[in-house]
Write a protein that binds this DNA or RNA. Structure first.
Lengths: 198, 198
DNA sequence: TAATATATTGAATATAAATTCAACGAATAT
DNA sequence: ATATTCGTTGAATTTATATTCAATATATTA
């Protein structure tokens, strides 16, 4: 790996980083190549030296995101509430200092219903149905009183939709991303937890 | 009002209705005039007979939305929880049969951070800061134990962000909009309510 | 240092979407 | 029934954005 290759890789990373932030804040269609170029402080033409197209750039981000945000699947947890609390604690915590994960989370959550995202990109996400997976955990946990009563899929849907909503607002309003102003992740866990436990 | 005028007004309403649905599902930038024209079953050119531009069409929707979604301000409530429960109950209820309000809610919630929305449209919403208003109600209600402890603004932010997230997902996935699958609005109220009450 | 490869730019081109417009058919008024 | 206005279309035109490209600067290699 020559010095130049490293430089190139860093440049690519810079573009990706800025693009992630912009895609999260504004969505795919509203984010212009020119916006990303400006954020990365380079000419529009140069963007195409590093990435074949806007679509390919986005695809690389989605692939990256598919690795990073699937955290819960690989967690070990002693009780099923930890699955959710652990993930949210991490997500909320990092949102303050390293918004990267939050941005990725926002982008990933929108892919499902964004028509401008080509279908081969959507396929990257096959098999990562967060709502489905969580519904199973909730269903299992309900038997032992870990979660409130109600349809597990609906609960899971409500939970992840809420998290998505909060992350989207946090992405858009950085002034909320301080220790003082950040919502407490436990408030959100209460969506599925109810008042059954302590 | 001649028959022709009525016809014209109906046509305009049809366009608005379809546009609301599409703007809610895909966002402003991703919704093409052609999409709306197709949904309303007319030529693209004809759209411009009814609306000066995409922007003006959107503006009309926002004005309309500014009237409809500001419901909570005008509600009477005996205890402050009713303010939130009443609104959510209404919103969730109508989402099933008349998704119109849900779509408007989604659109309105995105205006704040959508750069493609011109600033004179954003100004329509000045004075309707849902989060701010709710924070005051929460702050007042906390003294009497209606709400959980925590920064009122953060609680309000978390609550409305969650609602926004759920409405966005419901807008995109109509299969969740049935009596059986819909989340229970009380789960969401628990974000601010905590387990202080019954 | 000369030769070669890579990075960068700004201008040209291509593409997609919004908007305008001339033409025509259908409704309404005189 | 004729003239006038309105609704409609499809084909131009304009505008915004993505993409390509020739030219130049900068770095690397021989």
């Amino acid at each position: 790996m020559t010095a130049r290759d490293e430089q190139k890789e860093q440049r690519r990373q810079l573009i990706i980083e800025k693009a992630i932030e912009l895609f999260a804040k504004k969505g795919y269609a509203e984010t212009k190549i020119g916006d990303i170029a400006r954020a990365a402080d380079m000419s529009v033409g140069l963007m195409f030296h590093y990435f074949e197209s806007k679509e390919k750039l986005f695809e690389e981000i989605v692939r990256h995101g598919a690795m990073r945000t699937n955290y819960p699947r690989e967690m070990n947890f002693s009780d099923p509430l930890d699955y959710f609390e652990g993930f949210l604690k991490m997500l909320f915590h990092y949102s303050i200092e390293q918004p990267h994960i939050m941005y990725l989370f926002v982008i990933m959550g929108r892919i499902g219903f964004s028509e401008s995202v080509p279908s081969d990109i959507k396929e990257i996400l096959n098999g990562i149905n967060q709502v489905e997976q969580s519904a199973e955990i909730i269903a299992a946990g309900q038997k032992y009183g870990y979660f409130r009563e109600g349809d597990p899929y609906s609960l899971s849907f409500a939970f992840w939709s809420s998290v998505q909503g909060i992350m989207e607002q946090l992405a858009a309003f950085p002034e909320m991303r301080t220790k003082e102003k950040m919502p407490d992740y436990k408030w959100i866990v209460d969506i599925i937890r109810g008042k059954n436990n302590d």
